[in-house]
Simulated scan of single mutants.
Amino acid sequence: MVKSQAKEIRAYLLKKIPVHPKNIVAKAAKAFACSRTTVHRHLSRLLRDGEIIKTGTTRQIIYFLKTEKNKKILIPLEPSLKEYEIWKENFSQDFESLPKNVQDICEYGFLKMLNNVINHSEGTGVIIKTKWSPESINISIQDDGVGIFHKIQKSLCIKDVREIALHLSKGKLTTDPENHFGESIFFASRFFDDFHIISSGISYIRKNLDEDWFVETTKYKNLPGTGLIMRIALGSTRTIQEVYADYQHKNSEGILKFDKTHITVMLSKLPEEGYVSRYQARRICLGLEKFKSVVLDFKNISTIGHGFVDEIFRVFQLKYPKTKITFTNTNDDVQFMINNSLSQE
């Protein structure tokens, strides 16, 4: 009898959650003459089984069926397409129950990345998917265009497509400087817990919880266009404002400007290389004159060469003294090479 009622309660919850997402606990407790604790126990079971999603806290809790939230739409890419209209007509309502900070991040990522597709992909269509779980939300955007890495490689005359992940990670990289600042990927990759680009057989991943980047070759070498996947936990406390604060400062007119970047030095090395040459250092330095402050992160790097250090800390700094370069996560060997170079200035 107890097992039978448990099944009945869970079946009732799955049927009525779409009708009563905010007060399903009270409705179920009344329908079965049971305690709220009993209803919460069955809701927890459905959450563990991945059949429902819970957003909000305490009195603001709202429940959804996972199948209600998951969406997939195909949109023809036309000059008149407006990213905000796609968001508003198809997705924005799904995100309204999320905490404001998570909602803002999802909206930013959706609008900025779709805008990039519309303006730069040269494709004919885009597939947008949302995939909800009890813990997180995934937003994926796949176009059939020329591919982000190929387009940047051609526009900036970069020899090896694998270098592009490094340049994207710096920020202020754009193939259309008259109309775009090159900020959207930089900030979106820091707003979300995971940010993933797949294009031209290259997979570029940032994991914010580990503060780490990964660049890998993939088996999808013939996949057209660009694939983007952005994931964030429903309970994330990260805010757009706090991330902006890490990379923006007010100029003389009191206007916030994007003038600081953080570079993972490990991204400058191709798999067959070591951190020794001036050429590798020039990859890092490319575009840094656009910033006032640069932090070089030497995480997971055991040693570097004299030419590598000299190119960054002497040659580049002599040419662009207004750009301040600092460093972090150096081991003793790397620290010695940098100190030795600085002492010879």
Rank of each mutant, 00 (worst) to 15 (best):
F327V: 09
E8V: 02
L14S: 10
F186I: 06
I137K: 01
I185Y: 01
K15C: 02
M337S: 14
W87I: 05
R59W: 13
I148Q: 01
A26I: 06
P21R: 06
W213R: 02
C157V: 11
I164G: 06
K299P: 03
E78C: 12
Q153N: 07
I62P: 02
Y63D: 10
V215Y: 00
H167A: 06
P18S: 05
K129A: 09
H120K: 04
L209P: 00
E78Q: 13
N70I: 05
I127P: 04
T38E: 07
E311L: 12
I197L: 15
K319M: 10
N329S: 11
T326H: 00
G227F: 09
K170F: 04
S341Q: 13
F336S: 02
L14A: 02
K260R: 11
K54E: 14
R283Y: 06
K69D: 05
A245T: 08
K54G: 04
L228W: 13
E163Y: 05
R45T: 10
I62S: 06
V2E: 14
I232V: 11
P177W: 09
E51H: 00
N208H: 00
S44H: 10
S200Y: 01
A33T: 11
P321I: 03
S169I: 07
R231V: 11
I118A: 02
A28P: 04
T239P: 05
R45S: 14
L296C: 02
R59K: 11
I197S: 02
Y320N: 13
W132I: 03
D212M: 08
A26T: 15
I75G: 05
I61K: 10
T130I: 08
Y84E: 15
T226D: 05
K151S: 15
D144Q: 09
N70L: 02
F149C: 12
V161N: 03
S4G: 03
P224C: 03
C106V: 15
I75Q: 03
C106A: 15
T57L: 10
K319Y: 07
Q93W: 00
K72T: 14
N138P: 04
R45A: 12
P271Q: 05
E68F: 00
K260Y: 03
E163M: 13
A28T: 15
H120C: 03
R59A: 15
R10T: 13
A11P: 05
E89K: 08
P321H: 01
K30N: 07
G147W: 01
P134I: 04
K290T: 12
I158L: 15
K66V: 14
S92A: 15
S189T: 04
A26M: 05
G147R: 02
L43D: 03
D143V: 07
R238D: 01
F181T: 10
R283M: 09
P76M: 10
S80I: 11
G254Q: 12
G305D: 13
A33C: 08
L173I: 15
E135Y: 08
C285Q: 07
S343L: 04
V126Q: 00
E311T: 14
L286M: 10
L223A: 13
V334G: 12
I158F: 04
S236N: 03
T328F: 02
F32H: 10
G225R: 00
N138S: 13
F192A: 07
V126Y: 10
V126L: 04
I164S: 05
